[in-house]
């Protein structure tokens, strides 16, 4: 396509948007709502995934001992565990260290109510890091057979819970976005159809003069594409502004869960979100206008 024709096509595409202002605005608003929800769900899902990965890469298995167990026995259990192929690292957490860590993580200003007592006196443990989380089940089975081991905790439960929530949010997101997608396609289709009706005379002249299908149709496809891109740009800007504020609020509000709530930065989220949202917006615009043009503009 020549530059002059391309320019004409772009100009007509933009003009079409202004010819049907109300419909164009409604279309942009719907696409924006669709992309906004997508952006929010996307941000939530990638952050959940990030937290799952963080949880999985943290302590996988904690081993507690029988009451009154000797230090030598604890050492020998540690040696047995270290020999296992699944284990990448093992760390002994004394009762004092466990209590210090608990105080820091969960008690905050209420720490003084316990005085010098250590409620976790019998809670010395081994924290076991695995080479691969999928090997956890076989290791846990083995650990339960060791004499002197009272309890084996799998921290992957938290990760599993997050994964389940993640899937649920994903399904809800797909459902809502699907409905909005359909509404957007319908609206964009109507907007383009009105544009075709308004420009009926011009299209008839174009056909008689010898314009190709491509030249006749492309302004409408450009119109759809532009509406889609504008509809994607607005929510992206909004989410960019809101993201840090929401993260800050959640971190402050749920400070007790700060070790679990590790959010991605807005830049990390937007590296994937921008292309995804732009493709989504442009895709809705293009598909909506393409369907209408095919249906109403037999050149």
């Amino acid at each position: 396509m020549r530059i002059s024709t391309l320019w004409y096509t772009l100009k007509q595409g933009v003009k079409n948007i202004f010819r049907n202002k109300i419909f164009s605005l409604a279309t942009i608003a719907t696409i924006a709502a669709c992309v906004f929800l997508f952006s929010i769900f996307f941000s939530v899902v990638v952050n959940f995934q990030h937290m799952v990965v963080q949880a999985q890469s943290g302590v996988a298995v904690t081993v507690f001992f029988d009451e009154g167990i000797s230090d030598d026995k604890i050492v020998s259990i540690g040696e047995l565990i270290s020999q296992r192929a699944e284990v990448s690292n093992i760390e002994f957490i004394s009762a004092d260290k466990a209590w210090e860590s608990f105080k820091t993580d969960y008690l905050g200003e209420y720490v003084d109510t316990f005085g010098d007592d250590n409620p976790l006196e019998d809670c010395a443990s081994y924290e076991i890091y695995l080479n691969d989380v999928s090997m956890q089940e076989s290791l846990v089975e083995y650990l339960n057979t060791i004499d002197g081991v009272s309890k084996v905790n799998q921290s992957v439960m938290a990760a599993t819970m997050l994964s389940s929530m993640n899937s649920l949010i994903g399904y809800v997101a797909i459902g809502i976005i699907g409905i909005l997608f359909a509404v957007s396609i319908f609206l964009i289709s109507n907007t383009v159809a009105i544009g075709i009706t308004v420009r009926k005379e011009e299209i008839a002249i174009m056909k008689l003069i010898g314009a190709t299908d491509f030249v006749v149709r492309s302004p409408f496809l450009i119109e759809g594409l532009l509406l889609g891109l504008i509809g994607a740009g607005i929510p992206l800007g909004l989410v960019y502004v809101l993201y840090n504020n929401v993260v800050e609020y959640v971190v402050n509000r749920f400070s007790a869960l700060s070790s679990l709530l590790q959010f991605l930065t807005v830049q990390e989220v937007f590296v994937t979100l921008i292309p995804a949202a732009v493709i989504m917006g442009a895709g809705i615009g293009f598909v909506g206008s393409f369907i209408t043009v095919r249906k109403n503009l037999r050149v």
Binding site: M1, R2, I3, S4, T5, Y8, I205, I209, G210, A211
Partner: peptide
């Protein structure tokens, strides 16, 4: 010019 534009004549020719 419209008639030349839509048959993709070069701008110079138009």
């Amino acid at each position: 010019a419209f008639a030349q534009l839509i048959v993709q004549k070069p701008a110079k020719e138009i």
